[in-house]
Structures are given as C-alpha cells and as structure tokens.
Write a protein that binds this DNA or RNA. Structure first.
Length: 607
RNA sequence: CGGGGCGUAGCUCAGCCCGGUAGAGCGCUGCGUUUGGGACGCAGAAGUCGUCGGUUCAAAUCCGGCCGCCCCGACCA
C-alpha cells in the first residue's frame, strides 16, 4: 500500500512551473471575507457565477483531505460509505411532502419526457427509499450510512465566498434504528465525532441547540465556528456551557420588582408612538412597558392568513421563530399598516385590550403576566394606559416564551449574562425520528412480528464550508497558514538561483521527498526570490524548505515553519528524514487537542 | 423580494458629471541585464467599453429596458 501511494505521489505534478492555478497580487473585488479573499488570491478557488465555484488543484487537495478526515471519523462510529444520486425523481420528494413544502430554494427540472426531477438539497428521501428495499427486520438494525455528495440549494442570496454557496459537497450520514434509544446512541456518537473532526481540522467547534426547521424531528444541534463572518447568532455562556442558536435560546425572565397593583389609568400621550418615546414621556424604564408587534401569519392553503398581535416587554424583541411555533403558522411576515388597521388596531398605540378576537390572534411573552403596572397602548391615537396588569386589564389567546434572547440576557442555568456571538454552521445533527420513514413507509418487523417505522437521524458537514472556516481562522496579512491536516501539501520546496548546483540539489531533494512519500510543492520557476517567498506565504503550506547557493554554502538546505525567523540549516543527506519528522510532529501537536474535547456525556444540562 | 453599489484589456481601476482618436499600473509575449522578500531596460500583443434599444452629425459618456455581479435586509439544515 505504501509503495502504491508513493508511486501515485511521484506521478502527481507538484512543480509550480507547470501548476494549474495562479496566485493573484490583488483579489477581485467581489470576494469579501478574509477566507474568500485568500482562497481566491492563493489560486484555490474561482467563482463561476453567484454561489458557484470551481475548485482548482490546491483546493481540491485540501477538500480531499477534509473528506478523508470525515471518512475516518464516520468509519470509526460504524459508518458505511456509499453514494447516492444528485438528481432525484420528484416522486420521492412528493412522498415525503417536501416537494410541496419547499419553495424556490429547491432546484427543479424536467427530463425530455417532461418528468419532474429534483436536484438534491439533501438525501433523506433517497436513504428512506433505500430503507424500503434493504431493511426488513430488527436484526438488520442499527445501521449508519454516509456519503460525500453534491447538494444544490438555490439560495436567495449566496454570499461570503464558500460560506454560503448554491452548489456544495456535504458529508451527510444517516442513522437507522429500531427505536429512540438506538437513535440517541448514534446521535451521541455523531456529537462526539463532530468535535473530533473539528479538532483534526484545527477548528474549535461549539455545539449549540438548534431549530430542526424543515428537517422535522425534535432534537438538533449545530456545530459552530465562532466568527464575526458567521451568519447565525448564538447565545453562549462559557461558564455554564449553555450554548444555543438565538432562534431557540431561552433565558431567565426576571420581572421588575413587584409593586402593589396600580389602578388602570388612561393618559394622553401625544406623538409618543415608540417605546422609547412613551417610556421617557411617562418617566419609566422601557422594562415597565409592553411592546406590540404585528405579523401576518400564513396557515397554509386550508386557512386564510390571519393577523397576529404579539406583545413582549418594551426592552425586548420578538423571536419570530418561537412566535411562529406558538401560533402554529407556516410563515410570518411583518403586517402592513392597512392590515393592522383592518383588524381595528392602532399602530403605535396598539393594545391587547378590546381586541377583536375573531380577527386577531394575540400572544404575549411569558414575562408579561409576571410584570406589573405596565405602560401599554390604549388602542387610540395619542393615548396609552398606565398601570396595566395582565389578567385584570388585558389577556391574550396564548402565553408563550416569544422574546428573543439578547446580549446580557440571564443565562437560563445560572442567571449570569449570556453573550451573543456570530457563528458559521459547519455541521449539524438532527434526530429525525419517523418523519420520513413514516410518510414514505420505510418500516421493519420487530421481535414480536409488529411492523414499525425505522427511527432515523441525519447528520451533515459542509466540506467546502469547513475549508472556508479553516482559511478564515488561519489567515494573516501575507496569506494562509493552514493546519498540516488541511494544507494541500505539507511543505513547499523553494529553489533560489539558477546555478547548476542549486538546481541539481533542489531537483534531487524534490525526487527524494516524493519517493519518501512527502507531499511537497516544488517551486522550480525562474522568478525572483521575492515572488517565490510571497507566493509560498500566500498559498499557506505550513512548512518551507529553501535550497540556494547561500544555504548550500552553510552546509545544506534551510528549513522551518512558514514565515518563521527560526530557520535551521539541515545537511542535504538528512533533509528528507528531518522534514518527515517535522511533519509527524506537526500532526502530533494538532492531535493533542483530541484529548480534551467536549463530549455528549460532558455537555452541560440544557433546559 | 426590498434598499444600495458596480459592469471599460487576464487582474485592480481611471475616463462618464461637461458626448468628438479608449487609457494607467500589475500581468502576458520576445530579447538582454538581474536573482534571499512581489527587479530593470527595450520592443510588442491584448478591450464590438455587460447587452438591447433610444436621443444625436457623433455615445464608454445622456435616456430607457434587460442581464450579470457585490453589499445590507428579508429568506435559509
């Protein structure tokens, strides 16, 4: 095996003079984040269209390395690699119902016979179809299958280089179990494996509770790379370990100190149509006010859209996802002024008192019933109530936690302030349960002869997105400094000068390294040293070896980490061995992080 | 889908306001000099100015439609 690898290595073109993919002195303006700037400048990726990228040889090598790490970690938890198609017949998506639930984000096309086809957004439907033919008995469970395959999602807005693209390769695995205990076991195995994967990529990943969304199911976690370039907001606490996507974050609701109930009083508040204005006008904190926000809820084809009046404390915002769940709507959008007026409400002075319950669904945050003597609208232009109390003066159809967590909100575990940060979703894990096996009829026969739906889980990691996060984390002013596990090559070999001796020695070392199986990128171009060093810095290989007349006169070749000042001279005859040692050491340093990773067992109790 | 910006040589951009021979730097090709942190000289190639239409004697430039790309928001395994 080793010999075969060596031969393949030897045959691979690793000479920069013939390399496909140029470095750019300046990046095209369209790239934005450090990662996409660097990946474009260093010749890893090229954009073909919005959200569609070509991966040049450097990126392709890195992606293959990431895939190999994923493969090893999936195999380690009993995964079996396979491959499913990118183009699916519409029927399987119709069976699951997602053909109808998902809108323009799904890529749809027709074949020559006019048959509807779907570009894979993910592969639950195909796995479930396979279950129907392959799984018959409880004896065949549990199972775990995975593949690395292209997905297409017609994102309304691709952005951020490789962070949010329309076509991408994902490692997605699927667990099949007889019951929820089995699912839980495989889910926990993935949870731990994902932390190992992060460590091997050199990324610190934070697992946060998340919304299952269109996947269905109940329990879900996202694995986040914390960074300002992230598109998700997270509420985290380092001390308690609480970590949640802001969509589903909870926090302690501490009411303002209780007074004795004041009488309800109608007061004239001319022009005080915002919370800040009315609070100042009435001389109270915004925490003593109630804020009304109106949405139109879409309840599907069966029911007409309906106005939703939501009320949170004046200093807070609405969590639209939780509001949507509370009213069981399929979608929400901000209501237009006319729609609000049509239901008899007065924007800016709206009130839950005297609502027309036939036209409006009213929801209050669970903090509102605990809060006394609030300032709220009087449902009449330029008038508010003071001393309003839930139950006595107004009520709602639904009381639910619909306030959005915020920076400094009390941690639900210990009440200390939560921190809201941005993160990139590198991976996610979902407990699907019987969402797909139920609707598509994938069942097995249990010990007692009863037919039951297979209990499923689904687990994804974006391969290109992982590369983008690594590039983001390991970029500096000169380029990338990639972890040894992800770098396309371990070492860049630079030859300086055109003297016959330097050339000869560099060529010999290049061949010796290849023969020894070292992944080396050889800069044999006839360009100035400055260009070679600048390109080496940019491309991001972690180690650099230089052969020049100067190094030879000092007794060998120069070797060190990228951009390091601590360069050593190694005699030529020891170079291969020393470089191999250094590569090994680099891997060991990286893998030290595997020892002290978060695990499912060690995670904090969540609420 | 709403708001904003951009589209001129392979790349970065100027020219547009105020209509009249299409420019610079980098890159590329050839020759020579140079070789430890993006060298220099000489010579050269390279753009139907996104696209369609309008105004005009004349449009990169003014006007309109469309397309594409970027950013913010909405949206979103």
């Amino acid at each position: 095996m080793r010999r075969i690898l060596t031969v393949l290595n030897y045959l691979t073109n690793m000479r920069l003079s013939k390399f496909f993919g140029q470095t750019l002195r300046e990046a095209p303006t369209e790239s934005d984040s450090a990662s996409s700037q660097m990946l474009v400048r260093a010749g890893y990726i090229r954009q073909l269209a919005a959200g569609l990228y070509s991966y040049l040889p450097l990126a392709h090598r890195s992606l293959r390395k990431i895939e190999q790490i994923l493969r090893e970690e999936m195999d380690a938890i009993n995964g079996q690699e396979m491959c499913m198609p990118v183009v699916h017949p519409a029927e399987v998506w119709q069976e699951s119902g997602r053909w109808y639930e998902i809108g323009d984000e799904m890529g749809r096309l027709q074949d020559r016979r006019g048959r509807d086809l779907v570009l894979a957004m993910t592969h639950e439907e195909v796995v479930t179809t396979l279950c129907k033919s392959e799984i018959r008995s409880y004896r065949q469970l549990p199972q775990m299958v995975y593949h690395m395959q292209t997905k297409f999602r017609d994102e309304p807005r691709a952005r951020g280089g490789l962070i949010r693209v329309r076509e991408f390769v994902m490692k997605d695995s699927y667990t099949l179990d007889a019951n929820f205990d089995g699912l839980q076991t495989q889910y926990e195995a993935h949870y731990d494996a994902y932390h190992r994967i992060g460590a091997r990529l050199g990324l610190k990943l934070v697992a946060v509770q998340s919304d299952p969304g269109m996947m269905g199911g109940k329990i879900a976690h996202e694995f986040m790379y914390i960074s300002p370039i992230g598109e998700d907001s997270l509420a985290i606490c380092e001390e308690t370990g609480y970590a949640s996507n802001l969509d589903v974050a909870t926090f302690r609701k501490n009411p303002e100190p209780a007074d004795t109930p004041a009488p309800l009083k109608r007061v004239h508040t001319p022009g005080q149509s915002t919370i800040d204005k009315v609070a100042t006008f009435c001389g109270v904190s915004t925490r003593r006010t109630g804020k009304m926000v109106f949405f139109m809820g879409d309840f599907g084809a069966e029911a007409p859209p309906k106005l939703i009046a939501a009320c949170v404390r004046g200093d807070m915002e609405i969590n639209e996802l939780q509001l949507r769940y509370a009213v069981k709507a399929q979608a929400l959008r901000p209501a237009e002024a006319e729609e609000i007026a049509a239901a008899g409400c007065v924007p800016g002075y709206a009130s839950l008192r005297d609502l027309d319950r036939t036209k409006v669904i009213s929801v209050v945050d669970d903090l509102i019933p605990k809060s006394m003597n609030l300032v709220v609208g009087a449902n009449e232009h330029d008038w508010h109530f003071i001393g309003a109390n839930y139950g006595r003066d107004f009520t709602a159809d639904i009381v639910a936690p619909i306030a959005l967590a915020y920076n400094g909100a009390p941690d639900p575990i210990d009440g200390k302030p939560l921190r809201v940060v941005r993160g990139v979703e590198v991976g996610n894990i979902f407990q699907l349960g019987t969402r797909y096996s139920g609707s598509m009829g994938a069942s097995y026969t249990d010990e007692t002869g009863v037919e039951r739906p297979i209990v499923m889980g689904s687990y994804g990691i974006g391969v290109g997105r992982a590369l983008a996060c690594v590039a983001e984390e390991y970029s500096d002013d000169y380029g990338m400094d990639l972890p040894i596990s992800v770098a396309p090559y371990h070492v860049v070999l630079v030859s300086l000068g055109r003297s016959g001796e330097v050339k000869e020695k560099a060529e010999a070392l290049y061949h010796a390294l290849l023969t020894a199986g070292v992944e080396v990128l050889y800069d044999d171009r006839e360009v100035s040293p400055g260009i070679k060093f600048a390109d080496a810095d940019l491309r991001g290989m972690p180690l650099r070896c230089t052969v020049s007349s100067r190094s030879l006169s000092r007794g060998g070749v120069e070797f060190g980490r990228r951009r390091s000042k601590n360069l050593v001279i190694i005699p030529l005859e020891d170079a291969v061995e020393r470089i191999q040692e250094n590569i090994t050491d680099s891997f060991e340093a990286l893998h030290k992080r595997l020892k002290d990773l978060p695990t499912w067992a060690s995670r904090p109790a969540t609420i």
